[in-house]
Design a binder for these strands. Structure first.
Length: 295
DNA sequence: GGCAGTCAAGTACGC
DNA sequence: GCGTACTTGACTGCC
């Protein structure tokens, strides 16, 4: 199992991603931000390796306004050498990357324009991984999207739109069950129609569970991943005490994590911890996984 | 230098 | 109809 955390460390000695306001856009500004973000990415991956964390979610903000029409900067040419070097590092150490386009990326929106902008964002993120030279086991994870008052029609629209995506994006795309709208069972139906792997989020499943429990669902989740897609990926989090239901916890709950590991004993998957203090909890989880001989 | 308001993007939901 | 959560920080302008 590879263990990881998303985007940027909360207590690492360097800052997260650099960006700027759209109104301040200039080629110089975007160059400077990308240069900074790539340098931080490289340092973060080195830190992760030193701490046994082999799975990492690259921030969508690596290239600011990447899929916005304002940004015509040839980032893939200018930073291609650096990105390829990072890719070599990742492959050389058997690490794994993913990216997670945010909530504005909606394949199944009834609005054509939103769909087209979503495609542009997916193409950008896929290209980042392509330039690094990563194979198709390095994924882009998205949610199914909105319901728009008719879930069945929205699922069908997702399936139709999926067929319109480029081969490169389809090779990387995975869908994740969410906490309110689309359950694992919904995602599995979309998988059956399209072949898209389902990234299983066990916290969302606990909140929005269309039926079976974790132990029953797990083999179905694993079966949505083919050999070429690599080891199945999942997200783990738990509820923050006293907060709105669905709020991700601030730090790892070791008891909950141990219970989770007992439930999924014997299965192989890569695990992304969606916990607010990021790499601090990841290190704690790493220690627990070692106790359980899961690494 | 410090602070508070604001930031590309969509959807759903509660008031 | 409006504000807010999602997730969260970092930028920006004003003092």
């Amino acid at each position: 199992m590879k263990l990881g955390y998303p985007c940027l460390g909360s207590a690492l000695p360097w800052q997260g991603s650099k960006t700027f306001r759209l109104a301040s856009y200039s080629p110089e500004r975007v160059h400077e931000a990308i240069q900074y973000n790539i340098t931080v990415l490289e340092k973060t991956l080195e830190w992760n390796l030193a701490h046994g964390l082999l799975f990492f979610r690259v921030s969508s903000d690596l290239v600011p306004f990447a899929s916005h029409p304002v940004n015509q900067y040839p980032w893939a040419d200018v930073f291609g050498g650096q990105l390829r070097r990072i890719g070599q590092f990742v492959r050389g150490h058997n690490m794994r990357l993913s990216m997670h386009p945010d909530q504005f990326v909606l394949i199944n929106s009834p609005t054509e324009d939103i769909f087209h902008r979503s495609v542009a964002e997916l193409e950008y993120q896929s290209r980042v991984l392509d330039v690094m030279g990563m194979d198709r086991s390095h994924k882009l994870q998205i949610h199914v999207g909105g319901v728009y008052g008719d879930k069945e029609a929205s699922i069908q629209r997702f399936i139709q739109r999926y067929a319109l995506l480029s081969e490169g994006v389809r090779a990387r795309l995975v869908i994740e069950n969410d906490d309110r709208l689309y359950t694992f069972a919904d995602c599995q139906r979309i998988h059956d129609a399209t072949g898209v792997p389902v990234l299983f989020d066990c916290f969302h499943h606990a909140l929005n569970n269309g039926g079976p429990n974790l132990r029953e669902t797990f083999p179905q989740f694993l079966s949505t991943w083919s050999q070429a897609d690599g080891t199945p990926m999942m997200d783990y989090s738990s509820q923050e005490c006293g907060k709105r239901v669905g709020t991700h916890c601030t730090s790892l709950d070791p008891e909950d994590f141990r219970r989770f590991l007992d439930e999924v004993e014997g299965y192989d998957f890569d695990l992304m911890l969606e916990i607010k203090d990021k790499e601090l909890s990841a290190r704690q989880a790493f220690a627990i996984l070692r106790e359980h001989h899961r690494l």
